[in-house]
Amino acid sequence: AEKTGIVNVSSSLNVREGASTSSKVIGSLSGNTKVTIVGEEGAFYKIEYKGSHGYVAKEYIKDIKDE
């Protein structure tokens, strides 16, 4: 049951290796980017990222929809 969301930041949002603010940053997404959410862990969504997965803070994702 995948969902999509939109990155809701003015600059960019860090994509992390794990569901923690201390996890390594593996990339970033600019505002209004559409993401595919494959799961959630605590305050983070697990998303599809560059052929693999990454984690982003839930508070910066809006317009969550079921695909």
Rank of each mutant, 00 (worst) to 15 (best):
A1T: 09
E2R: 08
K3N: 05
T4I: 14
T4P: 04
G5Y: 03
I6V: 14
V7N: 03
V7Q: 02
V7M: 03
N8Y: 05
N8F: 05
N8R: 14
S11C: 08
S11A: 10
S11Y: 10
S11I: 10
S11N: 13
L13E: 03
L13W: 02
L13A: 11
N14K: 15
V15Q: 00
V15N: 00
R16V: 08
R16D: 00
E17F: 08
E17M: 12
G18P: 01
G18K: 12
A19E: 02
A19D: 02
S20L: 07
S20N: 12
T21I: 14
T21G: 15
T21H: 15
S22K: 13
S23R: 04
K24V: 09
K24I: 08
K24E: 08
K24P: 13
V25Y: 04
V25F: 06
V25Q: 04
V25K: 06
I26E: 01
I26F: 03
I26R: 03
I26C: 04
G27I: 03
G27Q: 02
G27F: 08
G27H: 02
S28P: 04
L29N: 00
L29C: 03
L29Y: 03
L29G: 00
L29Q: 02
L29A: 02
L29F: 04
L29K: 01
S30A: 15
S30M: 15
S30W: 13
S30I: 15
G31I: 09
G31A: 15
N32C: 06
N32Q: 14
T33H: 09
T33K: 05
T33I: 10
K34Q: 10
K34H: 09
V35A: 02
V35N: 00
V35L: 05
T36Y: 15
I37F: 01
I37K: 01
I37P: 00
V38E: 03
G39F: 04
G39R: 04
G39A: 08
E40I: 08
E40F: 06
E40W: 07
E40S: 07
E40A: 08
E41W: 08
E41V: 12
G42I: 03
G42V: 03
G42N: 09
G42D: 09
A43T: 10
A43I: 09
A43Y: 08
F44W: 14
Y45W: 11
Y45H: 04
K46V: 10
K46I: 13
I47H: 00
I47Q: 00
I47D: 00
E48L: 11
E48Q: 13
Y49V: 03
Y49K: 00
G51V: 04
S52E: 10
S52Q: 13
S52H: 14
H53G: 04
G54E: 00
G54F: 03
Y55Q: 00
V56A: 04
V56R: 00
V56F: 01
A57T: 07
A57L: 15
K58N: 03
K58Y: 02
K58P: 01
K58H: 03
K58D: 01
E59Q: 11
E59A: 10
E59P: 05
E59H: 08
E59N: 06
E59L: 11
E59V: 12
Y60W: 10
Y60D: 08
Y60G: 13
Y60F: 13
I61P: 01
I61N: 01
D63T: 13
D63S: 09
I64C: 06
I64F: 10
I64Q: 06
I64V: 13
K65E: 10
K65G: 08
D66T: 11
D66A: 11
D66I: 15
E67T: 14
E67S: 12
